[in-house]
Amino acid sequence: MPMEASEIERMIKTALPDAEVFITDLAGDGDHYRAQVISEAFRGKSRIQQHQMVYAALGGHVGGVLHALALETAPPETA
């Protein structure tokens, strides 16, 4: 059973409450998504650490129910 984009967003925002999350269904099949996540929690972290934080938020669903996830992460830009 595919994972809904709203569920992905909910799980990420539960772990990273300040996050801005943008989910795109890449194939229209509920299995291949792109997630753009912006959170202050990423500041000072490497890209790998940022991605690990998102994967942890998804609780092991990546590679299972959620077949593929292209991730873009960043802290908010400061003016």
Rank of each mutant, 00 (worst) to 15 (best):
V54N: 12
L69D: 04
A70I: 06
K45R: 11
A68L: 00
L69A: 09
A68F: 00
H51P: 04
S46Y: 08
R43C: 02
G44A: 12
R43Y: 03
I48P: 03
V65P: 04
V65A: 15
V62Y: 04
G44T: 11
R47I: 14
H61K: 10
L66Y: 00
F42Q: 10
A68M: 00
A68T: 01
A56G: 14
A56L: 13
F42P: 03
R43A: 10
Y55M: 08
G59M: 06
V62R: 08
G59Q: 15
Y55A: 12
H61F: 07
H61T: 14
E72W: 05
G60I: 14
F42S: 08
V62L: 09
I48V: 15
V62D: 02
L66R: 00
Y55H: 05
I48Q: 11
G59L: 10
Q50F: 10
Q52M: 14
L71Q: 10
L69P: 00
Q52C: 08
I48H: 08
F42W: 12
G44E: 08
G59P: 06
Q50Y: 04
Q49F: 05
Q52V: 05
G59V: 08
G60P: 08
G63E: 04
G63Y: 00
I48Y: 09
A57S: 12
V65S: 11
G60E: 14
G64Y: 01
M53V: 03
G64L: 01
A57L: 11
